[in-house]
Design a protein around this nucleic acid. Sequence first.
DNA 1: CTGTTAGCGCTTTCAA
DNA 2: TTGAAAGCGCTAACAG
Lengths: 339, 339
Amino acid sequence: MAKHQITIIDIAKELGISKSTVSRALTGHLGVSEKTRKDVLELAEKWDYQKNMLAFQLMSSRTYVIGIIVPELMTSFFPKVIQGAQVAAQDAGYSILIGQSNEQYLTEVANVKAMLANRVDGILVSLTKETQNYEHLEIFRRKGIPIVMFNRVCTELKTPKVVLDDYKGATEIMEHLIASGKKRIAHLAGPKNLYSCRKRKEAYLDSLKRHNLPIDPELIIDYDMNLDQVKIFVKYWLDLPNPPDAIFAVNDPPGIEAIQIIKERGLSIPNDIAVAGFSDDNSSQYVEPGLTTIRQPTDDMGRIAVQLLLDMIDKDVSEWKTVYKVLKPELIVRGSSFV
Amino acid sequence: MAKHQITIIDIAKELGISKSTVSRALTGHLGVSEKTRKDVLELAEKWDYQKNMLAFQLMSSRTYVIGIIVPELMTSFFPKVIQGAQVAAQDAGYSILIGQSNEQYLTEVANVKAMLANRVDGILVSLTKETQNYEHLEIFRRKGIPIVMFNRVCTELKTPKVVLDDYKGATEIMEHLIASGKKRIAHLAGPKNLYSCRKRKEAYLDSLKRHNLPIDPELIIDYDMNLDQVKIFVKYWLDLPNPPDAIFAVNDPPGIEAIQIIKERGLSIPNDIAVAGFSDDNSSQYVEPGLTTIRQPTDDMGRIAVQLLLDMIDKDVSEWKTVYKVLKPELIVRGSSFV
DNA sequence: CTGTTAGCGCTTTCAA
DNA sequence: TTGAAAGCGCTAACAG
């Protein structure tokens, strides 16, 4: 490992000047003669000099890196949010360090520790479905490192959050299904500790009440995001003496899965059973029929989360505000609920 | 910004001992009294001490970070490879820094520079569709930082590569289509500077020749991965006096798009026209009919790439071998080509 | 305009 | 078993 990374000292030696002068020339400071500056820049270019950020970060105690921890990258949702975040971060001179928790609490904790050790200037977090303890995130506040939650947030932490108006989105789905004449709507609910899933379920229940439709406990199943089980749940519903005429899934993957199963049974979608999901996954437009869903403003979510974070960086903990930013959902009606 | 990150000095001060002793206790070195070790560890735990990796990395000139640069995260392919890489890296005590080049050469260069500045111990790269100049990657070799290419590789760089046997995969697709009785197979080819796309095209041409099928230039269109244009190309083909009876797209997104367009025309898939893609995107199983495609062993690809990289780290540049690892494709036949 | 010094937090000598 | 000093590469402060 003959890692010969060029340093300021190398350049200084070659040019026979002091390293501080080289540093000044490189950072574009005033007070360097035109000739010296030119010599330094030329040699740096020729030798592929790259500032050792490690050293710079160590002395400035700033890394200009924002950590972002997401539960998964398989559905298109998080990659889209990351894209939005990346653009905003880049504009402000920050890089993004991505951590993937794979929906596991322990991996999330490990990611958090790694980010802490790497001295990120702040982190954006979207929780795993398992996370119920927030000790690992509270450390950030204690250490004065800003943290912004997005999408998968929790009420226990006092910190800015960017979320979709899940209640409104779910209500739009329900209103749409009910307006289509559906009366026995089943709900595949998400993990109970995810706030957004609770909100969606709440909207489901409230919508039924508002329209004086009966709430049948048989039609509500808590789904822990294990796709393999969807088949069992949907078949259970289809086999009921009085099966549902619509299924509102907490997000798109199980909605897509449900469509497959219903088609296998030879039932008609949406006439026999309508299906709706949430979050507009890439695949949802391609299923046959297309899956009715809620589109989230992913770009905005990433951008706003970064902005909130940048606002906190440089400010004292005492000045931090716990903004709660709620974004608007957009109903996307496709063939799974509408002919 | 009252960032009060606990340091070894803080602990040393509190305990009234020297920082070197604290360091020794923390790193589990011998030659520390039981009591001192216990005191230090307890206080560290109590105060949430996190080693400042920046400082450690600066002195050890090792970051234990592997950079991975991918062109996009929207299709499920790269996230899957990353997942495989992440597991392998984690097992070896490395973290992964993800850079997304958005298929833009300049962004790729910027990513590379950022990784260099952050002193990653090595990088995995999959090129953008635009990349034709490899100067930014050659720097790594000069600096003694290992680099492994995967999926989107180039012949110009002497460095280990992990790729799918694109020629074989494309041949399997072609053999399958031809065996299904298709005789006028169109090919939506990928960007010319992507080696894997050239190989797929080569297989397309060779397969036609082998079966004494005519090669019609009208049926070969170079597609620059701009999805919007697919509509134009496919319509052009459909409007030919003698339209194709099958379309082999260089990857899945345009294949899926083609299916939509053909269906809009009221043509039957696969009877009138069969369609095939490449890489088995998540969405491909959900289109109607399902898209015939080639599955890549994404997990293996990520894992092997990391292994090759780790083999190079610590070794001198002179010992680096330019392994060329070729993985086996798997043909996935779905309704778009088979009834 | 340029050189010298000190220090970011850590580990690793070398001494005691 | 412990402490003191040096150094990783950089920049800011202070002299000259």
